[in-house]
Write a protein that binds this DNA or RNA. Sequence first.
DNA 1: CGTGGCCTTGAATGTATTCAACGGGGGTGG
DNA 2: CCACCCCCGTTGAATACATTCAAGGCCACG
Lengths: 230, 230
Amino acid sequence: MRANDQTEIRVLPLFRSMTEDAFDNLMRGAYVQTFPPHVDLIVEGDPCDFFHIVIEGSVELFAAWNGRETTMATVSPIASFILAATIKDAPYLMSARTIEKSRIVLIPSSDVRATFSTDLAFSQAIVDELASCYRTVVKNSKDLKLRSSVERLANYLLRQQRDQGNRFDLRMEKRRLASYLGMTPENLSRSIKVLRAYGVEVDGMSVTLTHIADIEKLAKPTPLIDDKDS
Amino acid sequence: MRANDQTEIRVLPLFRSMTEDAFDNLMRGAYVQTFPPHVDLIVEGDPCDFFHIVIEGSVELFAAWNGRETTMATVSPIASFILAATIKDAPYLMSARTIEKSRIVLIPSSDVRATFSTDLAFSQAIVDELASCYRTVVKNSKDLKLRSSVERLANYLLRQQRDQGNRFDLRMEKRRLASYLGMTPENLSRSIKVLRAYGVEVDGMSVTLTHIADIEKLAKPTPLIDDKDS
DNA sequence: CGTGGCCTTGAATGTATTCAACGGGGGTGG
DNA sequence: CCACCCCCGTTGAATACATTCAAGGCCACG
């Protein structure tokens, strides 16, 4: 593993405060791999052998049941995924595949568990990370259960706007966004059309919001669902 | 706080392995309170002052937005809730109210945070608990996004059957169950009717499943959604 | 220059919610 | 102890919402 990659990871909240020794130990068994787009990284149900960190590209987390499939989240650099399965030494609940060409760090799960049972700082960082993940999923559930599909889309766009400004790019295919938002591609198309009346202009992957106040009146965003962490 | 209550809590995975000192310290600021039914314990958005543990009765976690409300979970003894908010010192994402007369332990959040930053065993127990909570919510999301309402109900009944046998009691009002399963009370009524053809007999709050194999063929339960922890 | 996948649109279908009405059980107060 | 009432659950009908199916256009890729 390149020293360069290590320093990139070291600054993550997860690893920032752990001892030098513990970090070096953890990195000893780790390695970095570059994957082409559309490659399956893990399959739900499989035992959790590696903890994953995306340092370049992007990864889709998805789940399947009875022939249906749904996007659960997308992971962008620099962030980790499947921490909970790693900790519990339990089967993955979600599958993962690369969206684009991606560079991924793989750390043996047993190393992660061994380290967090000796290093208090690491253990605390994991607590913090897991708590954040938990709250993210809870917000997601609230979004799904309390809002209609148009409302979900409107709030999604406002969240993007908050991070990237009034003009931004959807960072994923529409069919993937639709699945993430809990609807079909056809329904997303129609929802976008509905939002035209609220100053939403979509051209391919690029979105422009011309009347934020109008969308907000419809979307009614709240920190308790739409903020990253609160 | 009664010594009796303390020993009850002590056996929880969360507290089982921490040092005697740390536990005593934590219990010093804690107190137990008994609440009548239908009392609001916490309100989403409020700052997180206390970590809660249900030792008797039952508590509903719910969320609201834009005049709508949905049940997120019910907590039965002995279990805790809002651990993540406690850890992050962040506002509650969910509200809580008693369903029946309930005895609840309240531990100042700051005490929990102080303890977990010094006691490694406690910190690890929290990691484990949070990982479990996370996986539970993820399973819930998969349930919501991948299954129809009849399928969700069928799987819910099978989970109850697995824990309580072929004849069991719904442990909550039907309207609450409907909300938990992400549907209206009317729709739950109709879903139950659909399941009659699969050997589901419902009389008030008591349920009898006479043809498990039939329901399973419809419900297609999977450990990756329906098992408590895996 | 073909070809396959994605997005869009329309129409038909299916699923779930809303609105309204009714019956029954539990609790309260007379 | 009984009568009343409120809330819950159920049912039906109408509506709204979302999916499915089918077709066509467009772009990217080979």
